Simulated assay, not measured.
Amino acid sequence: MDFINILKVIFLGVVEGITEWLPISSTGHLILVDEFIKLNASADFKEMFNVVIQLGAIMAVVVLYFSKLNPFSSTKTAGQKKATWVLWFKVALASIPAGVLGLLFDDFLEEHFHSFLPVAIMLILYGVLFIIVENRNKGKEPTTFTLGTLSYQTAFIIGLFQVLSLIPGTSRSGATIIGAILIGCSRYVAAEFTFFLGIPVMFGASGYKIYKFLKIGNSFDMTQTVLLLLGSIVAFVVSIIAIKFLMNYIKKNDFKVFGWYRIALGVIIIAYWLIVK
């Protein structure tokens, strides 16, 4: 097995673990990283790899929030179990828009948006939106402070915002957090619901990518299997750190720093694209 390829996979896992939860676009960053750190694998494998290692990231959410997400916990009262089921129903409802449209337009989006310029534009656009939304909401009190008071209607609207993240560079967490804040959720509720919303979406997207990979005649050899597992494990470990950092950060800070980061990165990418490409 190529040692250099292993190092590249570890680096990609680190990038995924950080960028999946911070609102700066994991898919966009993985596409950009591939420009400079070429994984020694087929285009089909790399396309599938960039999505499937998100399973490692999402397992970090499952582990960190297992008690809150487990409706069968023996330590919960009947009321708490019911509230957990209600949370899952809200997550399921919010997952429908992105799930349906993702299946319908996956090939189109891969063909037209998985490249430098669209990623850079989306990074800048949503960076500006983060700053605008935070400035607009400055001094305003949120109307939703807990997941328990999050209505089905609000959950579905957040799910509609998640559709925007189908375009690389947008950021799934970024789109849903912006949407949630706009309709009155606190930053903490917006972030937590975004984490939970990622569970069915990422499992579904990963399963679909594996299905497409195998459907066109590919198969997993031992090397590819090890690379997938390694990338997922690294993404899992780094995600735990990133999630804890973000949830502590937003207790006292807003999201504008991520907006400025997105704008700066987008400008650098466009400059590179114009000069080098």
Rank of each mutant, 00 (worst) to 15 (best):
I177M: 11
E134Q: 08
L164P: 02
G139W: 07
R136H: 11
G184Q: 12
R172M: 04
C185D: 10
L150F: 13
R187T: 09
N135G: 08
G179E: 07
I157H: 07
F161N: 05
F145V: 13
Q153G: 15
F145L: 15
L166M: 12
V163Y: 05
A191H: 02
L182I: 14
F195H: 01
V189L: 08
L160W: 07
A180I: 07
C185R: 04
S186T: 13
V189A: 05
A190M: 06
L164W: 06
G159S: 01
L166G: 01
I183F: 09
L160E: 04
A190N: 10
I178R: 00
Q162P: 06
G179F: 08
L164N: 08
R172F: 05
Q153H: 09
I178Y: 02
L160F: 14
F196C: 06
Y188D: 15
I183Q: 13
Q153V: 14
L150N: 11
G139C: 08
I181E: 13
C185A: 14
A175L: 00
V163A: 07
R172G: 08
F156Y: 09
V133N: 06
T170Y: 01
S173L: 06
V133P: 05
L182T: 06
F193L: 02
F193P: 02
L164F: 15
L147P: 06
Y152K: 04
I167Y: 03
I167R: 00
G159Q: 04
S186G: 14
S173P: 08
I183E: 13
T144M: 06
F161D: 07
R187K: 15
